[in-house]
Amino acid sequence: MSTVEHVRFKNRGMYWEIAADIYFPPNFDASEQYPAIVVAHPIGSCKEQTSGEVYSAQLAEQGFVTLAFDASFQGESGGEARSTEDPSLRVEDFRHVVDYLVTLPYVDANRIGLVGMCGAGGYAINTVMTERRYKAVATVTGANYGKLLRETEGSVAGVIAKLEQIGEQRTAEARGADWLIDPGLPSSLEQAAEWGITDVDILGATEYYKTDRGAKPHGVNLTLRSRMGVAYGWDAFHLAEELLTQPLLVIVGDIPGGFGAYRDGHEIVRRARSEKKELAVIKGWSHYDLYDKDEPVAHAMAKLTPFFAENL
């Protein structure tokens, strides 16, 4: 098992700290320098779930220093109001994380990579276009959060109506009303069945987050309604044809669901300017299978390990 260090560091330029877990490779020697990989958690998740205890831990076993962190406003990281999910701020977190990594004497600042999972896959793609200190980027069942939200509303008119509601709620809160927190998922698989939900991704998320399989105290899957406006107008892949040049690995399962990772994976590999890019389709598995199930995770690791060994 990898040695883990719990750290907190200042979100530079802001006023709170980011909480993270650093995983060290076997026989770690602090006098040497190592390639490092940042692993970012899915939307509604936390560093103790798939990004940390699965992928960061396994990548560390392969010789990398890895870091899994809680997004600002979430988990053990600081920031108010809690449960804010703002893509522009999530992207900014990636910059602060690399600011921290380059101060560590055992990290080779010229060999830092990034893995984003689910919605953080879209954030990772967007980040590396303008944050060149990340030398290679991979996504595991990555999704374009803004596109997903817009599609959920069903039409442009639906999106505009939602944005009107968000504005009204923000005005109410500015005048003293309580925060309005949206639950991201049904409370159980039984409730999902009662609601008639059949989408493989929503059912997979409910099983992962709402049962002992993946539930953690900080993986709350809650979103503050009044701070969602930016996300509805955000596109993770904007300017990928021009600015996304780092080596790129995109890993998806071949069972598509409503969160769009299968489709988004094909899209970004097609659009990316990167000369070195690969789409790895893990056959027979869906979005949430890739979070923690042994066989699909092993397939993903069989791609991630040589990708980062070659490109960092």
Rank of each mutant, 00 (worst) to 15 (best):
G214E: 01
L243F: 15
V250T: 04
A300F: 09
E241N: 05
R82T: 11
F69I: 13
V159C: 01
A302R: 09
D235G: 01
R263M: 13
D29Y: 12
F69N: 00
T305D: 06
T305I: 12
T171D: 14
R111H: 10
T139F: 12
A143V: 11
G44K: 11
E80T: 12
L243G: 03
V230R: 07
G219T: 15
G63C: 13
Y145C: 14
L239D: 15
A193V: 06
Y134M: 10
Q49V: 15
Q169W: 05
A120R: 03
Y288W: 09
Y100M: 11
A143L: 13
R175N: 15
V220K: 14
V128E: 11
T206S: 01
S2H: 09
V220F: 13
H218P: 09
T152C: 10
D264H: 01
L304A: 03
F9C: 03
L180F: 06
I43W: 06
F9K: 01
R170C: 07
V39A: 02
P42D: 07
I202Q: 01
I125D: 05
G13F: 14
I251S: 07
H299D: 05
A261W: 00
I255W: 11
D99F: 08
A68K: 05
V252E: 04
M1L: 14
A120P: 08
H6C: 10
V220H: 15
S2W: 14
T211Q: 00
E310F: 08
K277P: 04
H6Q: 15
F308S: 03
M1E: 12
D21R: 03
F69Y: 11
Y145F: 11
A161C: 06
H299V: 13
A174L: 15
C46E: 00
Q49H: 12
N144I: 07
Y232Q: 00
V65Y: 06
R263K: 15
E278Q: 09
W285M: 11
P42V: 12
P35K: 05
V252F: 15
I268Y: 09
K277I: 10
S83I: 03
V156N: 13
A231G: 00
L203R: 00
G253T: 00
G219Y: 14
A36D: 08
A40L: 12
Y291M: 09
A57M: 08
G52Y: 04
D235M: 09
K283H: 10
G154F: 04
A40V: 14
E168P: 06
L67V: 14
T245C: 11
V137C: 08
A20V: 08
R170F: 12
A161K: 11
A231M: 08
D70F: 06
L148F: 15
D201S: 01
R95W: 15
V91E: 05
A192P: 00
